[in-house]
Design a binder for these strands. Structure first.
Lengths: 332, 332
DNA sequence: TTGTACGCGTTATCAA
DNA sequence: TTGATAACGCGTACAA
C-alpha cells in the first residue's frame, strides 16, 4: 500500500541509492536523473519513512519542543512557530511538555532522546536554565537552542527579548501617567524572565527617584489564579497601589478580575498592565495594556537556529518587544 | 552512548529475543528471567528505539492527534488528555494541526501516515466528518477514533457529549430568566457540533412556544472576532435581543466585549452565555455562564478507545456536560 | 521457556 | 555520476 524507495527506484529505472541521493539533495546526480526521480516521487506520493531514516542515517528529521505550560496560548504559539519553520525543511516537531519540579524531568528527556533519536531540542524557560538538563544534552552530543535563557549565553544558540528593558519601559509608562505606588506581581522564581522583569521594574523606579516599597512586590506563578490572589492582597493594603504591573498577561487578567470583584471602577480606580503574548487583549475588560512578546517569531527563530548546519557557530538572536497601550491603564 | 537491546541482553545474560519478550509483555518468560531483565533495563536506563520498533514490528507505539484550532485552550486540553492516556501504555502522541479548507489536507494526512507509521489517529471536528479523510483511513487500514462526529456513528469508535440537549438546556435556562428574545451565534457550518447546538436552541424555543426569529441567528466562526462582530450586529437591531447564546466560549467572550464597547451595563442590559471548555470563565467580565464540555476527558477516552485491542468492536462513549451558571446572565 | 536467522526501509561506505 | 552491499535496532517466524 505504502510506496517505498524501492518502488520509486524501479519506476524511475535507477538504483535505490540514487533515489536516496535526490531525496537528500546530495551532489553528483545528473539533472535529468534528478527530475525523473522527483517526478516519480510525486506521482507515487512517496514519503520517506522517518523510522528507517533515523535508523540508518545520522539524522532523524525530527526535533522536539520541551515546553512548560505558562499558558495554553504560549504553548500553542511556540508549537506553531516551530512547526512553520520545520515545514520548510520537511522536519517534524515532537511536542514534549513537562512539569517543572517533576523529579522525572531528567529521565523524561533522556527517554525522549533515546526513543525518538531527535536531532535537537528547543528548551523554553525554566528548563532553558536547568543545569542538569543542559549538561546531559552536552554530554550526549544533542544540539539544543534555548528560549529566553538567564545564564551561560555562550553555551548554545538562543533567542530572547530584552525583558529587563521592556519591564523598565512599562514601568516608566505607568510613572508617566502619574502613578507613584505601582504594585508588581512576579512570576515563579525559577524563571529567569521573571527575575529580569522584576529587575527592570526596580531599575525604572530607582531612576525616577521613586522608593521601592517591598510591600508592593508579591510573588506569583504566571497564572490567572496567582495573579488574582496577589492582587487581592495588594488591594487590601491600607495604602493600596494605584497601578499593578504583572509579569504575565494571565496574572494581569487575574488582577483585573480581582478589581472587578471588589467593585472598583476600572481603569479609574486601578491601572493594570501585563507582559506576554497579548492573547488576552480583547477578552478582558478593560482591554489590557501590555508588553507584547513575539512568541511565534521567537519560536520560528529558535527552530531556524536548530536547523542550521552542524558547523554553524552558536548564535544569539534578540527580538523586539512592543509596548501596547490600551484601556486598562489611566492617568491618576 | 545510547543503550541498545543488545547491551541489555549481554548484561542480563539472556538472548536479545528474551529481552524483547519482556519489553512487550509476552508470555513464556520465566519470572526470574523477567525480573533480571527489568533490573538491567532500569539500570541502563534503556528505552527501545521507536524507529527500530516501527520498522520491525506491527506497531509504531505512536498515535497522532489531527486537530483543527478552535482555540489554543481546546488544542491544549486535547493534547493533554490524550498524552495522559498514552503515558499509561508508553505510547507517544504526535500533534498534527491542520487548517480546515486547506487543499493539502489529504496529502498531509497521507504523509503523516506514511512518514510516521502511526498506529492510529484521533480526529477532531470538522475532520471527524470529512468523508475523503475517513475513506482514506479505512482504505489504508489505519485505525481512528472520532471526537464529536456528526455522521456515520458506526464507522469508528467515537466520543462526544450530547450537544443538542446541552444547547437546549442552556436555552431553557435563559428562557427561565424571562428572556424572550435570545440571539444565537453559530459556529462554522462545517462543524457538526455547531449545527447540533443550533438545533438544540431552536428545539427549546419551539417547546417553550417562543417563535424563532431568523434575524436573531447569525453565523460565526467559533472565534472571538466573529463572536464580537455578530454581537455588534445583534445589538444594533432596533429590537435587539436581551440575551445572547453563543455556540462557543470564545464567541461569547466576543459578545461580552461588544457589549462593553457599547457601554452596556452587564449583565443587566444583556445576558451572555457560551459553550465550550470553560477556559475563559474568570478572564471575562462578568464571569461567563456556559455549558462546560469536558475536553480533556473526551480526549482521554478517545485515546483509550484508540489504544484498545485490535479486535475490540467500535464503541461510542457519551460524556456528561454541565451547565455552569455565573454572573453573565441575569433575569430580565 | 528460550534462542537463531531474517527482514523492515533507509543511509553509509566503498567500488565502479 | 552511479550502483552494490552492509549496516541501523528491533520484532517476527520458526526451531530447539
Amino acid at each position: 500500500m505504502r510506496a517505498t524507495i524501492k518502488d520509486v527506484s524501479r519506476e524511475a529505472g535507477v538504483s535505490i541509492k540514487t533515489v536516496s541521493r535526490v531525496l537528500n539533495n546530495e551532489r553528483y546526480v545528473g539533472a535529468a536523473t534528478r527530475e525523473k526521480v522527483l517526478a516519480v516521487v510525486a506521482a507515487l506520493n512517496f514519503r520517506p519513512s522517518i523510522a528507517a531514516r533515523s535508523l540508518a542515517g545520522r539524522r532523524s528529521w525530527q526535533i522536539a519542543l520541551v515546553c512548560d505550560n505558562p499558558s495554553p496560548h504560549y504553548v500553542y504559539e511556540m508549537q506553531t512557530g516551530i512547526r512553520d519553520r520545520c515545514d520548510v525543511d520537511g522536519v517534524r516537531m515532537i511536542a514534549q511538555p513537562y512539569d517543572r519540579g517533576s523529579d522525572r524531568l531528567m529521565s523524561e528527556i533522556e527517554g525522549l532522546i533515546d526513543a525518538t533519536h531527535v536531532d535537537g531540542l528547543i528548551l523554553t524557560p525554566p528548563v532553558s536554565d536547568h543545569a542538569q538538563v543542559l549538561e546531559l544534552l552536552t554530554e550526549r552530543g544533542v544540539r539544543f537552542v534555548r528560549v529566553s535563557p538567564g545564564s551561560a549565553p555562550a553555551l548554545s544558540s538562543s533567542v530572547y527579548i530584552d525583558n529587563e528593558s521592556a519591564a523598565a519601559e512599562m514601568t516608566r509608562y505607568l510613572l508617566s501617567l502619574g502613578h507613584k505606588r505601582i504594585g508588581f506581581i512576579a512570576g515563579h522564581r525559577d524563571y529567569a524572565t521573571s527575575r529580569q522583569r522584576q529587575a527592570g521594574y526596580a531599575a525604572a523606579l530607582g531612576k525616577a527617584g521613586v522608593a521601592l516599597d517591598e510591600a508592593l512586590v508579591l510573588p506569583g506563578d504566571y497564572d490567572f489564579a496567582s495573579g488574582s490572589a496577589a492582587a487581592d492582597r495588594l488591594l487590601a493594603l491600607s495604602d493600596a497601589p494605584t497601578a499593578i504591573f504583572a509579569a504575565s498577561d494571565d496574572m494581569a487578567a487575574g488582577a483585573l478580575a480581582s478589581a472587578h470583584r471588589r467593585g472598583l471602577s476600572l481603569p479609574n480606580d486601578l491601572s493594570v498592565a501585563g507582559f506576554g503574548d497579548d492573547s488576552l487583549a480583547g477578552y478582558v475588560w478593560p482591554p489590557l495594556t501590555t508588553i507584547r512578546q513575539p512568541v511565534r517569531k521567537l519560536a520560528w527563530e529558535a527552530a531556524d537556529l536548530l536547523l542550521a548546519p552542524e558547523d554553524a557557530p552558536a548564535e544569539q538572536r534578540e527580538l523586539a518587544y512592543e509596548l501596547v497601550v490600551r484601556g486598562s491603564t489611566a492617568a491618576v
